[in-house]
């Protein structure tokens, strides 16, 4: 102790104390700080790096250099990997042209690239991650319950059985025919375009799965068509048009045929 107290006025003492304090603070921080800051997962950091590279080429023009958004596109901080997987995976992003809303089109990126982009966007801030397959497997849901939920929450825009419908100023709620259950799940989770989001506090994971089970039952290529051709499922407008064009059309043709079969004497 004497040795220490004798040197307390040594010119280097302050430095030593400072070093010790820094070491203690650093050590404490290293042990207590949140895990993701460590960036020790090399595959993950590689994906983020690749994603950033793709982002800078394909997305930064509108969404800004660091995903902070610009006058041409919203901020992507905190939208999560699920939003990226939905928007890029269904071809809606990158945007082809400005318009009422982004249209679905053939996707530009491979699934691997999409995952990298998603990893990069997820690294910007916490958000919904891509769901596990068990969450959106239609087999795990109750279609009847899903139908009730669909009619309560979705049919206002997407029509009774998800055939799609018009929104204001050229926007639309798309037809859900044969949409991959994963994208339906992600859309509910993230609320893309004009759709409100339904986080798990609003529609629980089971609710979402029920809705997916319902859509799988009524609006896929393999769904049963009980009554014959469905005329697009748009309801009475299509039916009325069909009654006039095909129904009355055929009957007037019959009438013309009968009217032409006359008994009057023909010219010889």
């Amino acid at each position: 102790m004497k040795k220490l107290s004798a040197r307390r006025r040594h010119p280097l003492a302050a430095f030593v104390v400072l070093l010790l304090a820094l070491a203690a603070t650093g050590g404490l921080y290293a042990t207590l700080a949140p895990g993701e800051a460590k960036a020790d997962n090399s595959a993950q950091s590689l994906a983020i790096e690749e994603g950033k590279r793709l982002y800078d080429v394909g997305c930064a023009t509108c969404h800004g250099n660091g995903g902070q958004g610009s006058s041409d596109g919203p901020s992507l901080v905190g939208v999560g990997a699920a939003a990226v997987d939905f928007q890029v995976g269904t071809g809606r992003m990158p945007l082809q042209q400005p318009g009422p809303q982004a249209e679905e089109k053939p996707e530009v990126y491979s699934q691997e690239e999409i995952d990298q982009l998603a990893a990069y966007i997820a690294s910007l801030g916490p958000g919904a991650s891509v769901p596990e397959e068990s969450l959106y497997d239609p087999a795990g849901g109750d279609p009847a319950q899903g139908g009730e939920l669909f009619r309560t929450n979705c049919s206002q825009c997407h029509n009774f059985s998800g055939q799609g419908g018009a929104l204001t100023h050229g926007k639309e709620a798309p037809n859900l025919h044969d949409v991959d259950p994963r994208y339906i799940y992600e859309a509910m989770l993230t609320g893309p375009q004009n759709m409100p989001s339904f986080p798990n506090t609003v529609l629980t994971e089971e609710d979402k799965q029920d809705i997916i089970a319902y859509l799988n039952e009524v609006n896929t290529s393999s769904s049963a068509h009980q009554g014959g051709l469905s005329l697009g499922g748009y309801g009475p407008v299509g039916e009325g048009l069909f009654a006039w064009v095909a129904g009355i059309g055929a009957l007037v043709a019959c009438a013309v045929w009968i009217g032409a079969r006359s008994t009057k004497a023909r010219k010889s």
């Binding site: 049919s155 029509n159 407008v237």
Partner: peptide, 10 residues
């Protein structure tokens, strides 16, 4: 409950 495409017959 309500749905879009709700129309009367022609």
């Amino acid at each position: 409950k309500v749905s879009t495409d709700a129309q009367p017959d022609w």
